[in-house]
Design a protein around this nucleic acid. Structure first.
Lengths: 180, 180
DNA sequence: GAAGTGTGTGAGTGCACACTTACAAACTAG
DNA sequence: CTAGTTTGTAAGTGTGCACTCACACACTTC
């Protein structure tokens, strides 16, 4: 027994988030995930119920990591006001997505929500994050909405590579956005 | 000669925007676009340089339609202040994307920006729209940024189907958003 | 040490799909 | 009418990939 199945699953999920993030669900063969995890394709199919099951599980892992980072960020808030807590959460999120895997995975997941299981996983992920943000920061609906609107703007900035574009319109969209 | 090639190209592009919007670039076979346009797959390959060329052309058509709608909306602004013009543009956009094809196509395009030609098409599209918004509304960088941030939030709301979710976190994210 | 259980893989199988080719029909030019 | 051009297709071809199966090795239990 080289390893337990449960430990393998964790390894595979980390690899899956990374690999699916780059090319998306349909363009990523399961062999690519298997190779990144260092095991055979056949064993990935034994550990998960299929490519879809693997992707849905990876989505869960992705949102878990985001929620954990935002939670840790909130702990570091200098004050207790909603604005300060939201700002600390935003900073933690900006740090987390510096490597882009988690951000790109979200974009990929949103793009395949025509598959009901994935749509449900996306909803569950945002439910987890949004309810935490709202309750922990004690923020108003409008503040929570703004928090997520600018988060989604980050998705556009990163996918379109706007931080590399020196033109005025791109500077307008990226100005003041932390990190990416 | 049943039709000119140029007229066929327009038909095919409209079909392509619709069909790619649903399942995305990789999951959409060219036969599906051909069927929606009412011609054979082989002829689609003669009209466009390949599946990628077709998608890039469809992206151009998509952003052209968005820019035209926003421009028309701006003409209907009740006043001349940046806020009023932006509001009219937002209203026009909300109307335009009621059928969801243009919105979902943007999401799909952003998801395949790892393909350089598509990334460039997405940048070109947002350049077209953002420069127009900024110059026509005479808005500040921050106002333009906010305009696009809430536009991107619409993408999340629609892809995740949040308008169907009765829970408080979903209401917070969708409150005040026009239409979708 | 035999039997059972959990971990792991190589070698398929079948199908979907991007793209090509050979060919046909409509139209145009002279 | 004929020769040439444009619009259009049916029928392939080759490849990549999701998923399976038979089999092997490690470890435990009695």
């Amino acid at each position: 027994m080289r390893s337990t199945a449960e430990a393998r699953r964790v390894t595979v999920l980390n690899a899956a988030v990374s690999v699916f993030a780059r090319a998306g669900f349909h363009a990523t063969p399961v062999t690519a995930v298997a190779a990144a995890a260092g095991i055979s394709e056949a064993y990935v199919f034994r550990l998960f119920s299929g490519k879809l099951g693997l992707f849905v599980a990876a989505a869960g892992a992705c949102f878990d990591r985001i929620a954990a980072a935002i939670e840790a960020g909130a702990e570091r808030a200098t004050g207790g006001s909603p604005e300060e807590v939201l700002d600390a959460m935003g900073g933690a999120y900006a740090e987390l997505i510096a490597d882009r895997d988690l951000l790109l995975f979200q974009v990929q997941a949103q793009a395949v929500t025509d598959i009901p299981e994935i749509a449900e996983a996306v909803r569950a992920g945002y439910r987890q994050v949004a309810t935490f943000v709202q309750s922990r920061a004690g923020a108003s609906d409008a503040q929570v909405q703004q928090f997520f609107a600018y988060g989604q703007l980050c998705h556009l900035i990163v996918t379109a590579g706007l931080e590399q574009v020196p033109e005025p319109w791109a500077r307008a969209l990226t100005s003041g956005i932390r990190h990416p």
